[in-house]
């Protein structure tokens, strides 16, 4: 009897998640009347606005990942090594972006860094891009911090640090040659999640008026029928590819094999 309920729950879940996706994918293939075709995809991929916004968001995602790694890895490492008592507070802090809506964060940024403030970042395109990158880093912080912290939990941070110190290594060498390579899989997991978040993010990019992929998706969705469905499928594909890459890297990472 229990087994029947389990199967029923599983089937319901699968239908609930998969049916809209299947429907959307089928709909995106129906642009040409009466036949299935990839017209919507061809049109979307051929649109120069798509290429521009996607390229912009990709570059922003890469900078966000780089900044996130530079910020989170040393912080999580230091907290684990020297300030373990602060861990609950840091974890709470990193969860804040899940509680505070992106719109509140971006309004705070605009208020703090507008052209009449002491640091007028919104005064230039470069400054606004920088602000957007900080915003994306904040949004991705819960995922990046957790991924890195979980990675650090799998290694004996204190002993490895002391071993490296006894061999003459300074902090930079320890972080770059010992800690980072040993949490690389975790960092990459965080990086792919960050990439997926940045590619689909709308609120911050729209309010800071940057030519990102999220606002482009919204504009297209408001004015076309089949192309938004095709774009949504592409976005899902990107997210799934990112998740697949995380799995692939974990599987082929040589020195983590022992841990499994």
């Amino acid at each position: 009897m229990n087994r029947i309920w389990s199967w029923a729950a599983l089937t319901f879940g699968l239908v609930y998640f998969a049916l809209p996706l299947i429907g959307m994918a089928v709909f995106s293939l129906k642009m040409r009347r009466g036949v299935y075709s990839f017209d919507a995809y061809t049109k979307v991929l051929g649109d120069p606005r798509f290429q521009e916004t996607f390229a912009y968001s990709t570059v922003m995602a890469l900078f966000t990942i780089a900044f996130g790694v530079l910020l989170v890895v040393p912080t999580a490492y230091w907290v684990r090594l020297k300030l373990p008592g602060l861990r609950p507070y840091i974890e709470f802090l990193t969860l804040m972006p899940l509680v505070i809506p992106a719109i509140v964060i971006v309004f705070g940024y605009i208020r703090l860094f507008n052209t009449s403030s002491w640091l007028p970042l919104t005064g230039t395109a470069m400054g606004t891009n920088l602000l957007l990158m900080f915003g994306y880093t904040t949004l991705a912080l819960p995922y990046m911090y957790r991924a890195v912290d979980t990675g650090l939990r799998t290694i004996d941070v204190a002993t490895l640090t002391e071993a490296a110190q006894s061999l003459g290594a300074g902090w930079t060498t320890i972080l770059a040659k010992v800690i980072l390579p040993n949490v690389l899989v975790a960092v990459l997991s965080g990086a792919f999640l960050t990439f997926a978040i940045v590619i689909g993010e709308f609120t911050m990019a729209a309010l800071l008026n940057r030519p990102a992929f999220g606002p482009y998706l919204q504009v297209l969705g408001a004015n076309r029928a089949y192309e938004p469905a095709a774009l949504a499928v592409i976005s899902f594909a990107i997210t799934w590819v990112c998740m697949g890459l995380i799995q692939l890297i974990t599987r082929f990472s040589k020195h983590t094999k022992a841990a499994r």
Binding site: D156, A163, A164, Q165, G170, V178, H255
Partner: peptide
């Protein structure tokens, strides 16, 4: 002196080999 400036070798109970 900092630990990395003392030129002292050390072995630990937990081996502490760099896994990577």
């Amino acid at each position: 002196l900092k630990p990395n400036r003392r030129n002292i070798g050390m072995m630990f109970q937990a081996y502490a080999l760099f896994p990577n």
